[in-house]
Design a binder for these strands. Structure first.
Lengths: 137, 137
DNA sequence: AAGATATTTGCAATAATGTTGCAAAAAGGC
DNA sequence: GCCTTTTTGCAACATTATTGCAAATATCTT
């Protein structure tokens, strides 16, 4: 029943206040979160270091993944479906709204095929589209 | 004849040592550069602040553009062709090599069309592919 | 080419962001 | 409930980025 515990246990993580709260944030957030967002929304109940380490752990376990940005920040978003195995399958497009500044995972929009020149071996493809999102339009 | 002066003057920028040297770095670099790379390669002849401001100016003028990354760094690369007008047209794919860690602009690989859900307005599309580049393969 | 004006640079101070070691606290197993 | 393992928080430190202002440099004018 409790989705939080479920996810944590599935990944062999001890259930702690910090992890629960941060994971809850992600579950309730429509878009991606930056480290700063998380610090804000946990109203300083955790040490900065804990947030760093929790995010790192979640990425390693495949609970969240990070999204490329053009500024010097890291955005994190929940992995859907079958990422939890340990390796990521984030084959969806990320959208950044220029108006509300939110980043959204467009789970239904899949990454198109890209043909690379000879000699290049392709492993991961990230697509980030910016513009105006449906809510701000 | 001097490409450096040409670019700077076209963009109504005063020609200074710093700008010349940094722009030269970009012209001689096959891939993208991070702020740290630039500081290294100018062997501390400029203040860090100058580098920051120069990069910012170049981005504003459309001489360089920045490339999304999943770590907390900003990569910059020269804009080709007709970016210089002021707004960017970086419709090429960026490739990050997992081995040599270089980022390369694949000018010949164009960004595929992506259909967004209703309500989304698309402005800029960035595609970042990681894997192994032709030199490391 | 020299002076006047506008722009750019470097320094210093400050802020923001990220990392590491270690002892105390909390979680999981029995 | 006790013991072992894991996680947290603190402190100190390292790195990266920003701002104001005076000095230096570039451009313009004549």
């Amino acid at each position: 029943m409790d989705q939080l515990l479920d996810i944590l246990k599935k990944n062999q993580l001890s259930v702690t206040e910090g992890r629960k709260k941060i994971l809850e944030l992600f579950l309730n957030s429509p878009g991606a979160l930056a480290h700063a967002d998380i610090e804000k929304n946990t109203d300083a109940s955790f040490d900065r270091v804990t947030v760093y380490r929790t995010l790192q752990t979640f990425v390693e376990k495949g609970i969240i993944h990070n999204i490329p940005t053009t500024d010097n920040s890291i955005l994190y978003a929940l992995c859907k479906d079958n990422c939890e195995a340990g390796h990521h399958h984030d084959n969806h497009v990320h959208f950044i709204c220029d108006v509300c500044d939110k980043t959204i995972c467009l789970d239904n929009v899949s990454i198109p095929e890209v043909k690379l020149p000879k000699g290049f071996k392709q492993k991961q493809t990230d697509v980030v589209i910016s513009g105006i999102c449906d809510e701000c339009n």
